[in-house]
Design a protein around this nucleic acid. Sequence first.
DNA 1: CTCAAATAGATCTATAAAATTCTATTTTAG
DNA 2: CTAAAATAGAATTTTATAGATCTATTTGAG
Lengths: 110, 110
Amino acid sequence: MDFYTLSDKTIEKELGHRIKALRLRKNMTQKQLAAATTLSLNSIKSLESGRSKLATLIAVLRELEALDHLENFIPEISISPMQLAKMQGHVRKRASGERLRPQAKDESEW
Amino acid sequence: MDFYTLSDKTIEKELGHRIKALRLRKNMTQKQLAAATTLSLNSIKSLESGRSKLATLIAVLRELEALDHLENFIPEISISPMQLAKMQGHVRKRASGERLRPQAKDESEW
DNA sequence: CTCAAATAGATCTATAAAATTCTATTTTAG
DNA sequence: CTAAAATAGAATTTTATAGATCTATTTGAG
């Protein structure tokens, strides 16, 4: 499946369906899942239709023993030795900016 | 990384960090990402600290060209021929319930 | 086939995220 | 080193989700 051809809304729904499939695989009702996660039945229903917070998703995945899926979800970035060399061992913490006026040290003097 | 040993909050933060890494890999500022997604700068900041909605995450992943990761996220459940046989070709759409009183056909009569 | 249970959907209230605007700190180009 | 830009964090208003309750529809165990 190519997610790039789908709208955000469609992707949300698709994820909801897959989470529902995980629940059914364990033969749990929405009610049981709600109780197990201390979330409301409504939250479970919303999640399975794609509308929810990350926190809700995480709690549900934990209960469904599917937390490990998160690993593939957003993988840790691995920096290759070559890249590291290129950066002279410096790991960037911010994106580079556009400097408008490279201010001179003493401009107020002219 | 074993997510099961981590608290929900910690997982949220970890995911936020990874999204930040994805952004830096493309050398984009939070501001640029906000503009590109038509989200607010604050939403980007919140996402990178782990607090956001699924919709926000999807929009950002699309912009960061990381939507394909979702494919592995929660794989579509593939039903094996054997499983299908066991279910007699029936695909379950609901979890099985607990029936309290297997109501007799004519109970009102005694 | 029946009907109890599961699920969908809709409406309120409460709570949290999105958006906007500030202040403060940190990184890094020059 | 310096200052401009990037980022963190906090307060406020708007908007969406969480939670609770109700109605309606659908599934599947018996």
